[in-house]
Design a protein around this nucleic acid. Structure first.
Lengths: 343, 343
DNA sequence: GCCTCAGTTGTTAACGCTAACACTGAGCGG
DNA sequence: CCGCTCAGTGTTAGCGTTAACAACTGAGGC
């Protein structure tokens, strides 16, 4: 395998070293590297040989300085182990690497205005080529609005009201899928344990749930909002649900909440799916091994990552483009947590 | 809130613009920015005023070019939604941001030699100040060995045999804690569902388990290795465990596996903890809401992140330092998945 | 044979910053 | 009162790359 020197003999070779070895000017080397048309095949080969011989690798800082842009995409995300955000980040990293872009992640601890602004500004300092903000709550909006229009920026799970390109999971469709599935299995109505109210994701899911019920002529039960997306909050909601005899179907806004609901119902002797049916959202890898295996909604995080990458890349290459909203539909994954009452 | 211009009026202000406004040379501005001693208070204030007035922000590409190092730490990690790696990455991002460093993540899809090498080289191209490699398997070792000694590089969960600074969770201690806990509750021996054999993490846990049994004079049952860290693999192991009447205590190498084990035992009518006790590893946020709530080992990912950051930073500031191994002890979190047989 | 022109290559000047060194003038000992 | 020191400041030269333009080549048209 090739060795990766750093200062081994004297110093890292620069473009001029390659040029000297190949007997051309450094500009010709630059042309070869950037695939400029007017370079003869003969020189191209000689330069390439010199490059490999020296193990030359372009200095991206110098390139960034002169072009004003680095080959890096800045991501702003909350540091979180929640399955959704974590999956998204992982998928985006892979997609960006394939496109030849480095990814610089500015993790923020809290989803407040200042954190978002600082993170965006840090990225601007390093002259990133584009920015992707995972902006699931309204506090991100102010920070995003303050960014100049000509900065290639796309939001993921952000505010649809902002005039910025946006990629989201189609939350409303996911909620519709979940709710309709329960309705189709003979449940008179469906209760909903929603995520925290500030999250756009959660709001979309609430909307989809509510509209589906209304469209079906079903009664809309009171919402059970969770404080956060955790199992602990789901547990609290489950404790409440377990006390109401008329509850037969529950849609939890994500799988973490569903775990908590499941636990609470189990603890209080309410059997799933026999007495209460449950549908989650996210399809965490363990969902198929819950007790019982959880029917849930699976978003396509890879598709979201690819779409957001494509949007930034378009804007990087072509400058300002009209804001464009992309919505990725999720799918229903049926397992054993829903009982068919029609049987 | 301050606006974040990019090309709003004419162009982004540079150091010379600040200098002109403050009536000093650009070098003085540089000195103010880098807290050089010999700057009079009066000038310092004038420069700072000019900086805020113009909204000047230093161009890090230029700085990186001239110094040869950027204020960025490169991380090589597998793109994964496994709780351990994801937590670590999140914690590292936060720690680095607090220290004023940007984090560039090179996600690799597969843990093979080539992927590791490419990721490291990409970071070297961008002249990162230091590199942190999450290198849980042996294939990473070759890539790491090829890196020049004077590059500040630290491994996390890597090969202890390599002469490089290393930070790990004390796997052996964690496994000891889990095994001893079961032994202490009157179990004659403890079975172990291990992670995939290539992972150093998994090997350490196996070692800790085995040594603890030996030290206690308990019989060491055959190892049940999982193909990967997933619930699906845990489920397979659980199916096997459920068929052996003598099994009363199981230590699963992580919580994802434990979910699968729990599911398999439940499915086959073996009650936890009544018939079989189970301990996991990682303390995923849901662990307290499993059925039953899972007793598990909690690693301190924040501490691992901080320690690895400190090691790179030391090496960045002081050049080559002797390789230093840091091992962070985890703690036992007791919940309801272990039965006391002594009662 | 000379001019033109496309194709190829070289030269020069940035980009925004830091490092090294040069300069200034006040303070102070002799 | 000269010269030394030293804090405070300015000047200059890069860092490694791309962009703009200049300069050379040889082929083809007149």
């Amino acid at each position: 395998m090739t060795s990766v020197p750093s200062s081994s003999p004297s110093r890292v070779p620069a473009m001029t070293d390659v040029a000297a070895l190949a007997g051309v000017s450094h500009q010709t080397v630059s042309r070869v590297l950037n695939n400029h048309p007017n370079v003869s095949e003969r020189t191209r080969l000689r330069v390439q040989a010199a490059i490999t011989e020296l193990g030359y690798r372009p200095n991206s800082a110098a390139k960034a300085l002169v072009t004003g842009r680095s080959q890096t995409i800045g991501v702003v995300a909350q540091s979180s182990t929640l399955f959704g955000p974590a999956s998204l980040l992982a998928a985006f990293n892979v997609a960006a690497a394939q496109a030849g872009f480095a990814v610089s992640v500015a993790s923020i601890r809290e989803l407040d205005r200042g954190s978002f602004r600082d993170a965006v500004e840090r990225h601007l300092d390093t002259r990133v080529a584009g920015i992707v903000v995972i902006a699931p709550v309204e506090t991100a909006s102010a920070a995003i609005e303050a960014v100049a229009d000509d900065v290639p920026l796309v939001m993921v799970d952000g505010d649809p009201a902002l005039p910025r390109p946006l990629v989201t999971v189609d939350q409303e469709e996911g909620a519709r899928l979940a709710t309709q599935h329960l309705l189709d299995h003979g449940h008179a109505t469906v209760w909903h344990v929603s995520g925290p109210g500030e999250w756009f994701d959660g709001r979309g899911r609430v909307r989809g749930w509510q509209r589906t019920l209304e469209a079906a002529g079903a009664q809309v039960p009171p919402l059970l909002p969770a404080l956060d997306w955790s199992a602990a909050s789901g547990y609290q909601a489950g404790l409440v649900l377990s006390r109401m005899p008329e509850v037969t179907a529950v849609f939890a806004a994500n799988d973490h909440l569903a775990v908590g609901v499941l636990r609470a119902l189990h603890e209080r002797g309410r059997r799933v799916p026999d007495e209460i049916s449950l549908v989650g959202f996210d399809d965490v890898p363990e969902a198929g091994y819950f007790i019982p295996p959880l029917t849930t909604i699976r978003p396509d995080f890879d598709a979201v990552a690819r779409a957001s990458l494509r949007l930034v890349l378009d804007r990087i290459e072509q400058g300002s483009l009209p804001p464009h909203h992309v919505s990725i539909p999720p799918v229903l994954v049926t397992r054993d947590s829903v009982r068919d009452l029609r049987a």
